[in-house]
Design a binder for these strands. Structure first.
Length: 436
RNA sequence: GCCCCGGUAGUGUAGUGGCCUAUCAUGAAGCCCUGUCGAGGCUUCGACUUGGGUUCGAAUCCCAGCCGGGGCGCCA
């Protein structure tokens, strides 16, 4: 590692460094100039530290630093001194200063201003916004829970794969897709890796997962939707039924939730506490859900998917029993995609995982018989010839299989109680936002 | 796709027909100050989304455009 600009991060400096020379680097968060003495707060990836500038001792350094715009980038070599008056317990007295970058003024978004900014302004200036510890904490936790997901899935012998995001035709029907020109052909951005991860079940890879991008051209305008989002997609072969899939999903969520609860520094910054849920999660059949909702005077009719209001209501009902996580199982066949395995005449082996009244994952046992699959395609108003490449994977030996898709941003939103899904992705793509 | 709402200095706001030469805070520029940590004090700078209309008079009322936020549907 290059140590020219930095020998220590702010948090790495300890009493054994006192009275010796250190080199620190970061952004100028604030300068408090008292006349003959000034204090400069320098922020790095781990926190902040104070540079103390004495006009009499080092007049050139004093003048140079005191006149620097906030958010400029510095590397400073100086003497580290113990001082109880300073928050960190030490201060750095600069001897040599390298200004690596001078920030323009005024800042379009104050990193430590005493005024709030609109979310839109924050997103317009996302790079500055991401300098705030409470914003950064979300992405440090995101990294941690994804690492936990990798570790858990690999421990269960899942293989990480990557399937194409530029695809030839409609994958599942339903949602609108972004069109693009692929040389002389029309192509689309994948709305999910569904058909590809299923195809892989016919290869012998048996258990796969993908941290996948979903592109959806729906013109929704809500706090819970993105047009570009990410998900953990899992597919597994040789399963007995969807219960095996649900067991993996709940353990995955548990592993991620547990890892998040260990991010104490980030949670402190966000002022959140995380309670790890107990396994197994409650299973509640769709029929049972409809009954419960009707008892609460919901107008829901059997056969349709839950409305946002119904989902919320069910969340409240479960909350009364102290349940945050629950599976809704055995959905009506008609409310699930064509590849969902039927269970009897009207039900399916499809399920959703709900967290506090919000859907964070949905999955199922899939159909592996090509005849039944073709029949279901037609029943859903789709044309088998549009799915020839997909159906081909089923013709030459396809084992029983199932899986799920798990929205990462939705998960984080629930995990950290954030009110807008855009908080959970670095550079959100929504109905109107294409930059930054 | 349907339906609601909003747009005032770099940032966040006050303003409901004349008291607006537009409030306050934050910020920026400058000055004073040797222990600040939301430092303090003083000075200065900087804004009504666009185009029509109503009116003696419009930031304020009406219409249209542009830009944006949100609810529902759909879904992760």
């Amino acid at each position: 590692m290059c140590r020219m600009y930095r020998s220590h991060y702010s948090k790495e400096i300890s009493p054994q460094d006192y009275n010796s020379s250190v080199t620190v680097a970061g952004w100028v968060e604030d300068v408090r100039n008292l006349g003959s003495i000034a204090f400069l707060i320098l922020r790095d990836a781990q926190g902040t530290l104070q540079l103390t500038l004495l006009k009499k001792k080092t007049p050139e350094v004093f003048e140079q630093l005191v006149s620097l715009p906030r958010e400029s980038v510095l590397s400073v070599k100086g003497l580290c001194k113990e001082n109880e008056k300073v928050r960190n317990g030490y201060e750095v007295l600069p001897e040599t200063v390298t200004v690596l970058s001078t920030a323009e003024t005024p800042l379009p978004l104050g990193v430590v201003d005493r005024v709030e900014s609109d979310f839109d302004t924050r997103l317009d200036n996302r790079v500055l916004d991401l300098r705030k510890p409470e914003v950064q904490a979300i992405f440090r936790i995101r990294d941690a829970v994804l690492a936990a997901a990798d570790e858990y899935l690999r421990s269960q012998h899942f293989l990480e794969v990557h399937t194409p995001k530029i695809i030839a035709s409609s994958s599942e029907g339903g949602t609108d897709m972004f069109k693009l020109q692929y040389f002389e052909k029309q192509a689309f951005l994948a709305q999910s890796p569904q058909l590809y991860k299923q195809s892989l079940m016919a290869t012998g890879l048996d258990r796969v997962y993908e941290i996948a991008w979903y592109f959806r051209a729906e013109e929704h305008n809500t706090r819970r939707h993105l047009n570009e989002s990410t998900a953990i997609d899992v597919e597994m072969a040789f399963i007995k039924d969807e219960e095996e899939v649900m067991a993996i999903l709940e353990q995955l969520v548990h592993a991620m939730w547990t890892r998040a609860s260990e991010c104490s520094a980030e949670l402190a910054v966000l002022q959140k506490t995380i309670t790890v849920p107990h396994l197994p999660f409650t299973r509640i059949a769709y029929d049972n859900v409809v009954e419960k909702l009707q008892q609460q005077n919901s107008p829901i009719q059997w056969g349709v998917d839950l409305s946002t209001e119904d989902e919320r209501l069910l969340g409240d009902i479960m909350k009364e029993d102290g349940i945050d996580f629950y599976f809704i199982t055995k959905y009506p066949l008609a409310s699930k995609p064509f590849y969902t395995m039927p269970a009897g005449q009207k039900h399916s082996r499809g399920f959703d995982l709900e967290c506090k009244g919000v859907e964070i994952s949905s999955g199922s046992q899939r159909i592996h018989d090509v005849g039944l699959l073709t029949e279901r395609l037609k029943a859903c108003g789709l044309h088998p010839k549009d799915f020839e490449a997909y159906l081909k994977a089923f013709r030459y030996g396809m084992p029983p299989h199932g899986g799920f898709g798990f929205g990462i941003e939705r998960f984080l939103m629930e995990l950290l109680d954030l009110s807008n899904i855009r908080e959970c992705i670095l550079f959100p793509r929504d109905r109107t936002r294409l930059t930054p």
